[in-house]
């Protein structure tokens, strides 16, 4: 099912790791993502060793969990990003982050979608990538930087106590713009 792919999509490699324990494919994924995950963590304000630990531990999980990756449901980059994000939370917080669980009896399942409402993962990914490229540069930067990235260390320390009080209107504007572009490309209410 992977005849078509996006440039920079790593689903084929991740599937090879999951199905065949392919170490060469694993090395390629590591070479691309691990240094970039580390950079992101450094920008979140993590110390060098901790940033490296997040990147390393993320890839321990990539190896162990690769067979659970389903290219129909997620892009490889998104799947790896969520592992890195959760690893960062594990290492920084004494309590993990609450998450909705699809197997929870109280979980509200999605309504049945009509065939033309169903977009493939690849179609959505393409639209999101295109929408990001259409964003004005200033707004793209807001989304690319971590929330605290442009603040000094002491401001980070202060704002961590009440991060929501400092939610930037710039972030909201960037997301509104992104939503407008995606709605135009994919149809109203598609995100």
């Amino acid at each position: 099912h992977l005849q078509e792919s996006l440039p920079g999509d790593w689903s084929a490699e991740l599937v090879l790791v999951g199905r065949q324990q392919d170490k060469a494919a694993f090395s390629k994924l590591f070479a691309h993502f691990a240094p970039r995950i580390k950079s992101t963590m450094l920008r979140y304000g993590l110390k060098n060793e901790l940033a490296e630990e997040v990147a390393q531990e993320t890839f321990v999980l990539v190896w162990r969990k690769a067979s659970q990756f389903d290219p129909e449901k997620a892009m490889a980059s998104t799947w790896i990003f969520t592992l890195a994000r959760n690893k960062k939370i594990d290492l920084l917080r004494k309590q993990g982050r609450p998450e909705a669980d699809v197997n929870d009896p109280a979980f509200e399942q999605e309504a049945e979608q009509t065939p033309d409402q169903i977009l493939t993962t690849l179609q959505r990914a393409k639209a999101i990538k295109a929408a990001m490229e259409k964003l004005p540069e200033q707004q793209r930067i807001v989304l690319q930087k971590s929330y605290f990235a442009d603040e000094t260390q002491s401001e980070i320390a202060a704002s961590l106590k009440a991060p929501l009080g400092t939610v930037k209107s710039r972030l909201r504007l960037a997301l509104e713009k992104l939503r407008t572009i995606l709605d135009a490309d994919l149809g109203e209410g598609s995100i």
């Binding site: 590591f30 995950i37 992101t40 390393q56 190896w63």
Partner: peptide, 30 residues
């Protein structure tokens, strides 16, 4: 899900940090 994908897309724009371990080291740990 869309925002997770946007954040993952941002990874591709990230610069490349030096890692002190390589893929084989991680495989040994895993």
């Amino acid at each position: 899900k869309t925002y997770e994908q946007v954040l993952a897309e941002n990874l591709a724009q990230e610069h490349v940090s030096e890692m002190s371990v390589n893929a084989d080291d991680v495989l040994a740990i895993a």
